[in-house]
Design a binder for these strands. Sequence first.
RNA 1: GCCGGGGUGGCGGAAUUGGUAUACGCGGCGGAUUCAAAACCCGCUCCUUACGGUUGUGGGUUCAAGUCCCACCCCCGGCACCA
Length: 955
Amino acid sequence: MSRDSFDHKAIEKKAQDRWAELDLYTTDLTDDTKDPYYLLFEFPYPSGDLHIGHWYAFALTDIFARKQRMDGKNVLFPIGFDAFGLPAENAAIKNGVDPKKWTYENMDRMRTQIRSMGASLDWSKEIVSCDPSYYKWTQWLFTKLFEHGLAERKNALVKWCPKDQTVLANEQVNDGHCERCGTEVEEKNLTQWFFKITQYAERLLTDLDGLPWREDIKDAQRAWIGESEGAKLTFMAHGPEKDDTTQPIPVFTTRPDTVFGATYLVLAPEHEMIEVLIQDASNPDAVREYQRATARKTERDRSENKEKTGVPLEGITATNPATKEEVPVYIADYVLNSYGTGAVMAVPAHDERDFEFATKFNLPVKQVVRPRFVDESNPPREGKETVERDMIIGLVRNPKNGKFLCLNWKEQPWTTFVVGGIETGEDSIEAAVREIHEETGYRNITFVRKLGGISQTEYFATHKDENRIAYTQAMLFDLVDEEQEALSPEEAAKHELVWLSPQEITSRKIQHAEFATVWQRLQNGIDTYVGDGILFNSDGFDGRDNREAMADIVEFAGGERVKNYRIRDWLVSRQRYWGAPIPVVYDPEGNVHLVPADHLPWLLPEDVDFTPGAAGAGKSPLATSKELHERVTRIFGEGWVPEYDTLDTFVDSSWYYLRYLDPKDDHDFSDQSLMKKWMPVDRYSGGSEHTTMHLLYARFFNKALYDLALVPTSEPFGERFNRGLILGPDGAKMSKSKGNVVNPDGVVEKFGADAVRMYLAFIGPYNEPGNYPWNLDGTFAMRKFLDRVNALYEKKTDAELSDETTKHLALAIKKIGTDIDRFKFNTAISTLMTLVRELEQLPQVPMQAKRTLLILLAPLAPHLAEHLWSKLGEEGSVHQAQWPAVDESLLAVNEVTVTVQIQGKRRGEITLRPDSNEDEALMLAKSIPTVAKAIEAGPPKRVIYVQGRILNLVF
RNA sequence: GCCGGGGUGGCGGAAUUGGUAUACGCGGCGGAUUCAAAACCCGCUCCUUACGGUUGUGGGUUCAAGUCCCACCCCCGGCACCA
């Protein structure tokens, strides 16, 4: 340490004692003299030891908390523990310790560690979610949701983690694996508790628009909710005989405009109507076998192997509601039972998946929308007659070298494929063969396939003085041999033949959209058209724009327009011990009853066997509790049984921000008048991993409570900032197995709490989720900086404050202030460093400067600032000081440096008054030799002068 | 594949939103000090000998582009057989 070093341990203790003595951080929530400001971070899980990530989360948010107080706000900055959860239970299984003991001991240790940060947390509001005084109200809120139909018990296909021996919410499954332990999840059909978040899908979506969040956070939620607009259409399905039953099969589609092209129907293998239809099908065994095979596969297997599979319901057909035609019915696992209606109308011409299936099962493809192109170089003209023509585009490929036959047109700067009209009596393939022969002389070619469907191109035919619509079919041919006949003189005069490689064709960018589209399709191997266009093969709708006709087609087909959502109901039961018991019991008939409020908290039993499977497969350890069974019998009677499942810990964290306002209330979950005053949370800082889980759940929960008139606002959070991650020194994510975990205690011990938090603040912007590697050198450097600040206070203070220093201080106050407000601590610190350097240059540091510097330092290095504050002989705490107001007049500059450019290139700079005019600037600029020389040669053509910024001369 | 965000020195990152690109810091190099070392202090540190060039690549708009427009490449995050 340097000779001017300070004893960080001593000053940390002294400062923290002083704050406690002055009781600076107990927020009086009823104080009406100041504006309330609710600053929240995600309450930590008591995993045991404080991680550097905790510092990043709490100490940096504290910078902002302190600044808000200095701005005169009444700041609520609380902390608590998200203390239910799996690790406690796993420790119990592994080491035989009681989860409760394990959790409470961890919290004790962590409290001490957190206090060492010196963060301005209000511990008087602390909550612990596993404490009965807290989960009493988690349970009570559950009963409210149940009473209003927002919690229900239902049978559903759910995700099951075989390692954790519990069901999981959809949000807790990543790529088919348990989010927590990485084990591949299974699917089970179980009766479980759900919260009906789907009922709130639309509001969760639309209310996002009004939230002051970054777009990426909103977009992630939008994607998770997954709204699609479309229609519900009903196909009537029935067997071959007249007296066979007819079943309505509703389908959801986003493209009802293509219903005339629906050539078959597909049901998910789990679709409930299969049970009925199978009775009239001629192949029930094959259908059952396919259902069984699908059930064996995990969702991951299904989507990994995207090769389409399926089985027809032989003999069953369904009536297309638009065409009234009978179409075959299949079951296939590319249709998901849990999305939409579990059935789709298949339109192979306009959907890639349907096309793939249709190709495999030889089903008809019927095009009903054709893309529309307008030749912009020669568009149709008003008032001219319109003539329709059928045309072909022929692509001829030479299989020997992969090149394609193209035409360079002599009268136009175009390169195209062979193009021509279909004569009467010809089909399109014959026409293409003939055109290729006539235009190129090649006659030995074989037809490969048609490329997509028909498109239409509109243009004005100059030589005929008419508008034309060309309906074009593109086709691919292979050259058999290179035998070529001589071209007629007329043909030869029109164009020149060239063979181009695919690269050449792509890079030359074939001019007409129509040809370019054909080429792109061939390259991508896509034969479906999923875009918009003009309807045909669609009875009365022919010729209309598909989007425009959408609503009319839905009506014609007897359907209704609906919105569909991807989000599923939130599965909240867990077959684990360490969570809030679901406050429900079952009577001897198995009916659900809520545990009455006067029996809450419905205590978690303690006499349980944690061993996995001890209670029987798929059952929570609670089932092994004798006490719980006796309790239920005693209160409700003989034959009554308890619910054994506990609540997902995300339920606990969905309302904790409300409890902070009234943490000890035994009569209500929170206080109405305090909620009115403090909600919503002003700023919420947390990790991006919670975007589609906690953040979405809490928004739902709060909205549900709002609808029950239990909370005053429909959104719980105002601003939201997702912070990044601190990586190990090797740049990899910290993990015990990699051995790159940084223990903050050691670093704090060595360099002090202020240096650690300032290093973390300096590493990158806190208002965006970037990931930064931990670097011990950086912490050391930050300590050196603090030593330099400390040394500054050894200097004499007699000098008067100069105008220049006054201005530097004012600029720093403004910049550091706005940067802290925006969570841009990194640039706030760099400004502070620059200011310190300037003060170091002074022979003496005026008192006023010393005082101001400490106020600027206080949010960032609270202990050192406090220490130096008392050393200056100031009263109270530096943290009670006001953030200085900036005298804007001080910021007014009396001279500016203006860059002088010639043709936009920097040639020098001049110094002048900010309000100097162009003439003065020009005069001064002549003192720069290169500029003078340029002006001598001739006057500038143009002079651009931006006051205080730039002078640019153009010659 | 679709939707976001991004690409600036050896590294973390700045850049008043179109006006001096590389602030601040790390690392590196040199000096000073010391018997020596650490610490502290001072200087240098995008490329180029220079002219000049440089913000992923190529084009464009503009007096002026890291910033705006078009095309492409790469990285990160989210969603994904979602009809």
